[in-house]
């Protein structure tokens, strides 16, 4: 530890000097210039996107002020708009998705890294990656036309036996009435959450698989040598070692779940009030708000949508940075350069 801190200050200077000597001037200097300018171009593009969003959102944010975060309605032309309903809707859908996706992804990752071998392992890795590449419109149409009719029964059961939990309550549903309409259960947060869960499962799973497979061999062998079963080894070595990656992967999935648009837009019927009943018809999310309202929006409307988009961006950004920090910390020291 002390040796490395003593060496570090002098090492770069020496390398720098030698590189100067090796530089013939011409080609390398041009090369570096090209690289740097490309980096600058990419930086400029991203800065333009960010600044443009911020500047255009400014108009709406100035008009709405602090009410932007507390207003539920979305009527920009009457200057009555805010992200309270849509932001909570987004978070609810993402939470439903995450609570379903995490067990699935953990099971998948553990099976791939600890149980499957040979061609089965390779096939599963490929399938998980493929699952991440399936277009969201395909997930959406599957959700609307296949899943929705079949999941209504489950929603009904949950509403009948779980209505003492406030989240699972459904207005306008009477468990005692066998003829009560099924339509109160369609287009809900719950259904959108299931579809989004399937979309983020591969993302979470591939990160978990990576950290699970990095669990040190010595500790694994040690657990076996002490007479542990395979599950005992997983519970005492693989899971504790991979905890950082599991949390980080989950947060990354959360970020993706919040940014998802088309599948959610196809499933939910948008409402602009806070809808805490996840099984009930009507839900909302920021991204589907944008997809719904951009066409008819005037100057203030576009600016308001920009502000909503910026809010979403800031939230996913915070979640993603948290995730990558946790993942990076969990991996420190696990890799060494050959």
């Amino acid at each position: 530890m002390t040796a490395s801190t003593q060496v570090r200050p002098t090492a770069p200077d020496v390398a720098e000097q030698r590189r100067e000597l090796a530089l013939p001037g011409g080609a390398d200097r041009v090369f570096r210039l090209v690289l740097r300018s490309m980096g600058a171009v990419v930086l400029a593009i991203m800065a333009v996107v960010g600044l443009f969003l911020a500047v255009r959102a400014g108009l709406a944010l100035r008009k709405a002020g602090g009410d932007f975060l507390t207003t539920e309605a979305w009527e920009p032309d009457d200057e009555n708009f805010g992200v309270a309903a849509v932001l909570i809707g987004t978070v609810l859908i993402a939470l439903v998705a995450i609570s379903l996706a995490v067990p699935l992804a953990t099971g998948m990752a553990l099976y791939i890294s600890e149980y499957a071998t040979g061609w089965r392992k390779r096939l599963l890795v490929t399938l998980v990656d493929l699952m991440a590449a399936v277009p969201s419109v395909v997930y959406g149409l599957w959700g609307v036309n296949f899943l929705q009719p079949h999941v209504v029964g489950l929603s009904r059961w949950l509403a009948t036996y779980g209505s003492w939990i406030p989240l699972l309550e459904v207005d306008g549903y009477d468990p005692g009435d066998p003829l009560s309409p099924q339509t109160v259960f369609t287009s809900s947060t719950f259904i959108a959450g299931i579809v989004v869960a399937l979309m983020v499962t591969p993302i979470i799973s591939s990160i978990m698989r990576e950290v699970f497979s990095q669990a040190p061999v010595g500790e694994r062998e040690g657990a076996y040598a002490l007479g542990g079963t395979r599950w005992g080894m997983i519970r005492t070595v693989v899971l504790p070692f991979g905890r950082g990656g599991m949390i980080g992967g989950t947060m990354l999935g959360l970020g993706r779940a919040m940014g998802e648009t088309i599948a959610i837009y196809m499933i939910i019927s948008p409402v602009f009030v806070i809808q805490p009943h996840i099984l009930e018809n009507g839900a909302s999310s920021i991204s589907s708000l944008i997809a719904l309202k951009y066409g008819a929006a005037g100057k203030v409307g576009i600016s308001a949508l920009m502000a909503a988009g910026l809010t979403l961006f800031v939230v996913t950004l915070a979640v993603n940075f948290g995730a990558s920090m946790i993942i990076a910390r969990s991996r420190s020291g696990a890799q060494s350069e050959v």
Binding site: F52, G259, V319
Partner: peptide
């Protein structure tokens, strides 16, 4: 500078695709 660009690129992967569309639209 490299570190800064890397951080910004990492941040931009969080940009929801609908917001990218809205940016081009606006």
């Amino acid at each position: 500078f490299t570190r800064f660009v890397r951080t910004v690129v990492e941040a931009m992967t969080a940009l929801p695709s609908i917001v990218a569309g809205l940016f081009v639209y606006a």
